[in-house]
Design a protein around this nucleic acid. Structure first.
Lengths: 213, 213
DNA sequence: AAAAATATTGACCAATTGGTCAAGTTGCTT
DNA sequence: AAGCAACTTGACCAATTGGTCAATATTTTT
């Protein structure tokens, strides 16, 4: 019996699709949706252009698939929290997991950045819906923590943006970071240092008090 | 007597060049270098494509001109500091002026982001030279402040990146910020709030003590 | 081994790309 | 008002764009 809805996931298909998705993520991240050409993606994947289109259907579909893959990674990162959790632990885990996403998926992070830079034409619904809800749910918890004097009464949404931006930076502006620090690449230990730095500054900065000291 | 090297800056030329530069900044910021088409820029400027090329020579020259214009704005922001300055004042002025650049020139900020996203092919020299020197000079001062116990001994380069990223965010990820906050645009008062928030978190976060309390 | 499904790819298409050019029109100076 | 420089613009160019398709080759299933 064969699957009716989706094409059979043969060995060949799996291998080629992965090569195409990875290549496309690089090219789209670098040059944005318009600036990326199917030809360039095909070359990066080591396949003829026709073959790429055979698998992915169209440039647009390929782009959407990549965004969905990235949003899945993003969602996998986001766990729920409650007032009863420890603010220090939660904020630190938040920073660490976001930085880990940046470190392990820099291309995807840059793809996301390129999409938002052009006004998020494909992600607007996601931003205004799912993500917005998630942010405000978390914001409420932050405010409750502040009411309990477990942290300073800072605007929780700006705080979330601070964590996003300061971590995202090391993917999106990697070229600048490398140019200024004079390195070839950032090692795992660098990410460790930066994460520690950000946890320290941000936790201290918003006066977070650990409930379990 | 006429200028020999540069073309006369006639009224017409001035008007058209400004329209072209502003239009191009928008289009390049949205779609990156490759993704931007001269046709799209021309339409945004309200001129025929041939006319645009008459003024700017080529797409590449236009892009370089825009990057130079943005780097001038960037440089105008950067004033020198010394160990004798007040850390609190300097850091706050740093954050405020960077945020002001983001607010008044969002397109240019996004253009810069798009350039760095694609690996900074045109700005590599600037990043590895001028800007790198500026960063390290300032980093030295931060370290001296830390040695004098005027602030915590944090890595000064990561601190500079934190300020850059957290302010830059409101230009580059404007679409996300608007989507999540549910606004049409960020007002001057919003920028004021965000700037105050960032000053507060970052100064407190790295234990900055004002020398003149 | 035959049949059926899946994969490969060059040829081709209309549309768009950055850029040139020549023929005009406008604007400024004298 | 005349003359010259600056400006304007449609026609045009080779190259590239995303995408189609039919012919062929390779797997997989029976």
């Amino acid at each position: 019996m064969t699957t009716i809805t989706a094409p059979e996931a043969t060995r060949t298909r799996l291998r080629n699709e992965r090569a195409i998705l990875d290549a496309a993520e690089q090219v789209f991240a670098r040059h944005g949706y318009r600036g990326a050409s199917v030809q360039a993606i095909a070359e990066a994947a080591g396949l003829p252009k026709s073959n790429v289109l055979y698998y992915v259907g169209s440039k647009r579909q390929l782009y959407v698939t990549l965004l969905e893959r990235m949003m899945e990674r993003w969602n996998a990162m986001l766990d729920d929290i409650s007032v009863d959790d420890d603010p220090a632990e939660v904020l630190e885990a938040f920073i660490r997991s976001k930085m880990e996403l940046t470190r392990t998926h820099p291309q995807g992070s840059r793809l996301f950045a390129a999409e938002v830079l052009q006004g998020a034409p494909f992600l607007q619904d996601y931003l205004r819906g799912e993500l917005r809800g998630w942010v405000h749910a978390r914001a409420k918890v932050f405010e409750q923590w502040a009411a309990k004097d477990l942290m300073d009464p800072v605007d929780p949404v700006w705080l979330i943006f601070l964590i996003w931006s300061s971590t995202q930076h090391y993917a999106d502006f990697e070229a600048q970071v490398l140019g200024i620090t004079g390195r070839e690449a950032l090692e795992a230990s660098d990410y460790q240092d930066i994460t520690d730095f950000l946890c320290r500054i941000i936790l201290k900065g918003c006066g977070v008090v650990s409930r379990r000291p």
